[in-house]
Design a protein around this nucleic acid. Sequence first.
DNA 1: CACTAAACGAGACGGTACGTCTCGTCTTGTC
DNA 2: GACAAGACGAGACGTACCGTCTCGTTTAGTG
Lengths: 189, 189, 189, 189
Amino acid sequence: MTGRPRDPAVDDAIRQAALDLITEQGYRGMSMEGIAARSGVSKQAVYRRYPGKGEVILDVLAVYARTRLPTPDTGDLREDLLTLLEETFAAQRGVPGALNQALAAEALQAPAFAQRVSSELIAARRDAVRQILGRARDRGQVTHPDDEVLIDLVFGPMWYALLFDAGKLTDAYAAALTDAVITAATHVP
Amino acid sequence: MTGRPRDPAVDDAIRQAALDLITEQGYRGMSMEGIAARSGVSKQAVYRRYPGKGEVILDVLAVYARTRLPTPDTGDLREDLLTLLEETFAAQRGVPGALNQALAAEALQAPAFAQRVSSELIAARRDAVRQILGRARDRGQVTHPDDEVLIDLVFGPMWYALLFDAGKLTDAYAAALTDAVITAATHVP
Amino acid sequence: MTGRPRDPAVDDAIRQAALDLITEQGYRGMSMEGIAARSGVSKQAVYRRYPGKGEVILDVLAVYARTRLPTPDTGDLREDLLTLLEETFAAQRGVPGALNQALAAEALQAPAFAQRVSSELIAARRDAVRQILGRARDRGQVTHPDDEVLIDLVFGPMWYALLFDAGKLTDAYAAALTDAVITAATHVP
Amino acid sequence: MTGRPRDPAVDDAIRQAALDLITEQGYRGMSMEGIAARSGVSKQAVYRRYPGKGEVILDVLAVYARTRLPTPDTGDLREDLLTLLEETFAAQRGVPGALNQALAAEALQAPAFAQRVSSELIAARRDAVRQILGRARDRGQVTHPDDEVLIDLVFGPMWYALLFDAGKLTDAYAAALTDAVITAATHVP
DNA sequence: CACTAAACGAGACGGTACGTCTCGTCTTGTC
DNA sequence: GACAAGACGAGACGTACCGTCTCGTTTAGTG
């Protein structure tokens, strides 16, 4: 049979509580117990939806991801890449940054979860850069043979900053990084 | 006054136990309680030395760091950088990799700790690359204006890999990264 | 709301473990930790029921108290009092004696707890004597004006013995005490 | 060899610290560790003098005991007994009361210690009453056959009060108790 | 309309780890 | 040798989460 349907209000309450806790107290202060308490929901209701903290974060982040802008396409590699990076970095300075840090913390504690994050969340961001590079490659602009390395050059420093110095992710840094990556992408004989 | 000196055997037992636990069971399986139990030492003896897990890892890693080789200096930028990266990545495939992951996990849970890690451990690695770049710059080879960005290009992807795909850190990846970074460093007009 | 009801088996296991520990190892050997371990119950389960050791003992003793015989009423003051004292002292020679000692130890470390013990456990015993004295007083036998002092004469020596010489609490001692108290109760002009 | 003699200042500091702690924080707050810290003395210096908390208390109490008045001897049983009890009870309302409570707590946790307390400290108090009763017995006033029971009638209620209601030990209570005990002592045919 | 099945809040449960405290012993260097 | 200092193993303290498990109650469909 069907049984009682899940209450969407509960869904929202959980996500909201998770978000609140993580922004107010960081990953440390975000516990399944705390989420339930804060949202006025039973622990079971949380565990019914998510197998663990990681999945909660993943879901909360997905909400942000859904509202994100599409990949820029101005015909200019530098402009496209810069726009994307500026937007991405700007987000990392806000709530999504805290969520990504939490995500990283979870991933470090469960390799299987790291895999999921990689394929579900990170892949999308990488795709965006891959598209930009692909278009530039079609225009003969990009000569570097391996997109993946270039993409690592873009996002590696971002995660590095999230780990040890989140304040670094400014527009200026986005620009510097963009230039360096473009140089690496376009100056291979 | 002096008081009874700390027993070096206890120091070693703690470090060894921490190392064992982290390599066998990962960051998750490493607890202050477990370290004490495994090393046959009282919890107090552990807490007397380290205020938390993070500091233990930091200290264990320091032992590895101390035994690390000096910065290569062959007069050839590519060879120097490649050697350094290959060595560093090779280490990340082993025990130090697990330790670094643990370190990252801790750093994510305590920003103050992230700062310490940054200045005490990471700085040394960055210095090595800075020296290599500096020498090449003296030879007129490096034209990119900002060492820091270049260094981020080197280590960003490494941490990124440690977070989501540690298996990526092969010699081949070290080579690809080296080439990309050198391109970025040397092709700025 | 209701929530999952407490498991009575856990209640019993805790009480039994506490009882075992206190009889086998005395108050010293009875710890919240030990109770949990011995009963195969989590520490939380214990702390959920009792805020501290004292309350555990109090509860264990209550079980004994509930099964105690009613106040004797033969119409003869000496017989009534003697019976009560013999029974009470006999109990002190057994498990309840150890429990009472533990109770005293706890009471000495927390005045607030002493108050509780006084009103919840000791009061019942005093009431029994008060009833016996009251009936004798109705028969014109007891002339001493203050029951409370007489009751202190009865139980004071008992606690004194529990503190320093538990072996003293024999039937003979009960008889000697009974006689002395009756003399004090009945020979006031 | 003789070695360095013990520093009397250390002796005093320990006793003073123990006294302070016990009066300020009760038995709970009196720890060997605390005594050492408070007195500015090493733990070893404390343990060198006393095998445990109990002995410290015993020693501190002994100082008080030494300064106590001699057994009253006015030729009047009631007056002698009343004086003794009033003085004794008055002391229990003060610092010696707290010390006695601590003593009781210790005795409950180590039967062997209870024995020592009994023979060293309590015996003196009992002797005093025994002397008073003896003199009255010589005058043909006391007819009760057993001094020990009478002495229990005197001190039992005192310890009982120390356990559960220290406030009870007033002059009025001393008087009531004196009268009851004298009745018991003098009205046996 | 009754029945069924799942969701829901509440909260108990066995675990595990946390960080702190005190115990009684020991090991330094200094006096 | 006493002494201050403080390390050491042991073990209890009380708390916090984990993920699972009852409870009794509500809320849809389905028959």
